[in-house]
Amino acid sequence: MKPVLILALIYLAYVDWRTFRLPNVITFPLIFLGIAFNAFSDLHLTSPNSAFFGAFLGYTLLWALNTGYRLLKNRNGIGMGDVKLLAALGAWLGWSALPNILLIASIAGIIGGIAWLKWRGHHLQQAFPFGPFLAIAGIIELLWPQLIPTLILPKLI
């Protein structure tokens, strides 16, 4: 099932990069498939409770962040497709993977965002897609779940 998830994430990254949209027709089924896969498969990636809570927490974290930003700036800071993508990653990988995913996506997003803005000649107020960075972070966490705790974190401390 990992290859299916990876292909879906690559597809979503490509679509978001090109269109600034993460289609509900892909993100919603990914959420439900992640919960079902972890609940009913012997090959599950996390416990069913962790998958359900991961979907809920992934959605709630970015939704709350966007809501706070919208109250301060009167505009969205992150798209709802990104919210649903993080919920899907939480459903597949569990709630405990969310901090690593957000850290990797944020670092990659800062680097990629600066490159995007310079390449496109935009200003800092211009939007750029965050979904590709969430997708990359999800793939990294899926394939190398101990990357942050064992390789990166000890070097930072």
Rank of each mutant, 00 (worst) to 15 (best):
A39G: 15
D42H: 11
D42I: 11
H44W: 14
L45Y: 03
T46H: 08
P48I: 13
P48W: 15
N49T: 13
N49C: 04
A51H: 11
A51Y: 03
A51E: 08
F53P: 01
G54T: 09
G54V: 05
G54Y: 02
L57P: 01
L57G: 01
L57S: 07
G58S: 14
G58Q: 06
T60N: 01
T60M: 01
T60G: 00
L61F: 14
L62Q: 05
L62I: 13
T67C: 14
G68V: 13
G68R: 14
Y69I: 02
Y69L: 02
L71V: 10
L71E: 15
L72C: 06
N74D: 09
R75E: 15
R75M: 13
R75F: 11
N76A: 05
N76L: 05
N76Y: 04
G77L: 10
G79L: 09
G79D: 12
G81C: 08
V83S: 02
V83C: 03
V83I: 10
L85V: 03
L93R: 03
G94T: 07
G94E: 06
G94M: 10
G94F: 06
W95C: 00
L98M: 11
P99H: 06
I101M: 02
L102P: 10
L103F: 08
A105H: 04
S106V: 08
S106T: 13
I107C: 11
I107H: 06
